[in-house]
Simulated scan of single mutants.
Amino acid sequence: MAYSNILETIGKTPLVRLNKTVANVRARVYAKLESFNPGLSAKDRIALHIIERAEQMGRLQPGGTVVDATSGNTGLSLAMVCAWKGYRCVLTVTEKISKDKLNSLRAMGAEVELCPKDAKHDDPRSYVRRAEQLAREIPGAFYANQNFNADNAEAHYLSTGPEIWAETDGQVTWLIGSASTGGTLCGTGRYLREQNPKVKIIAVDAYGSVLKKYHETGIFDESEIGPYQIEGTGKNFIPGNVDFELIDRFVKVTDRESALRTRELARREGILAGYSSGAVLQCLHQIKEQLTPQDVVVLLFADHGSKYISKVFDDEWMKEQGFLPEEEAVEEPAATIANPPHSPKG
């Protein structure tokens, strides 16, 4: 099929069965590979939807500026859409962004401002507050506001959810994905829950994030906030797109285990996925005892591993973090595939 422009290629990403990395998991496990989007992440869906809705509502005029705070993926997607549509793109990011992501943003024409990675949400130096300030200062700016813009979750409700339902022939029973802005997991999950109220929705969180405790207690506990390395997982504030009533459970994973799972995906499945994908796989292994052979589990793999070549796929970086020694501790034992791949129907 020939396309008129790059934006037409967004969505309809493949659902791929995992085998070697889940050999001791009783359920059938599939990964939704959002890296097949042109911007290499799930955020392409929301960038296009948010910008087109802003155009329709008159909030973004020709020649205008799009501003947002991003961990990198949304920024690249916004920059891609802006490049095609002719908008200026101004982004704020935290200093923990990988060099690969930062270079990609600038390559796409985005203007990028680095903000302290440990700044609290209300700190004027935080990447969110700085984006808000820029949106106020730049004439004609549109603040995409992915954390609180309901169009974020709606993009996945309208696309990712229906795709997964169709790809599994309506057999999906578990959905597992990282919680950050909440749009991908909750938009997708809301659609699936409407089709089958019994679908379990599991959110992956990081140590250093406030989301899990808030879900369990309703308390925003600043003592939970701390530095961590996983990108696109967890928050130090409560995003408006996280639907806490929709989510059944939050599961925290460590930086190290998530990094090693990410490397394992590449070496054993041939899937070069991003850091948060390793976090999602680690979460699966932490809850695997709850699964049955009848379950069909879909893991949301949000982005591509090429964005993390200088981090989790760099041995020196891994050693600096203390992650590389004893790598075999979280790897699955070598095994042949007991059950050959087949469709979700079985």
Rank of each mutant, 00 (worst) to 15 (best):
Y3K: 11
S4C: 06
G11T: 03
P14H: 15
V16Y: 07
A27N: 03
R28C: 01
A31N: 02
A31P: 00
K32Y: 00
E34Y: 08
N37D: 15
N37C: 08
N37P: 00
S41L: 06
A42H: 13
D44A: 05
R45C: 02
R45L: 05
A47M: 06
R53M: 09
M57L: 15
G58Y: 05
P62M: 00
G64S: 05
G64V: 02
T65L: 01
S71I: 02
S71F: 04
T74E: 01
L78C: 09
M80F: 00
L91W: 05
L91N: 00
T92Y: 01
I97R: 03
S98Y: 10
A107S: 14
G109T: 07
E111P: 02
S126H: 05
R129F: 00
P139S: 11
Y143D: 01
N145H: 07
N149P: 07
A150G: 02
D151H: 15
A155R: 01
S159L: 03
G161F: 03
E163Y: 03
A166M: 11
E167W: 01
D169I: 00
Q171W: 07
T173D: 00
S178P: 08
G183W: 05
R190F: 03
Y191V: 14
L192K: 07
E194F: 02
N196C: 08
P197I: 06
K200R: 15
A203L: 09
D205Y: 09
A206I: 09
G208W: 08
G208Y: 08
L211M: 11
L211Y: 03
K212R: 12
H215T: 11
H215M: 13
E222M: 13
E224K: 14
G226W: 04
T233C: 12
K235L: 10
F237H: 14
I238T: 10
P239D: 09
P239G: 06
G240L: 08
N241I: 03
F244K: 07
L246D: 12
I247Q: 01
D248N: 15
V251E: 00
K252Q: 15
T254K: 08
D255Y: 13
A259K: 05
R261M: 13
R261V: 02
R263I: 12
I271R: 01
L272E: 09
L272M: 15
G278Q: 08
G278K: 02
L281P: 07
L281C: 09
Q282L: 04
Q286D: 12
P293R: 15
L299A: 12
H304P: 03
G305H: 10
Y308L: 12
I309R: 10
Q321E: 13
P325V: 07
E326C: 10
E327S: 14
E331R: 13
E332Y: 07
A335V: 09
A338G: 15
A338H: 11
A338C: 13
N339S: 12
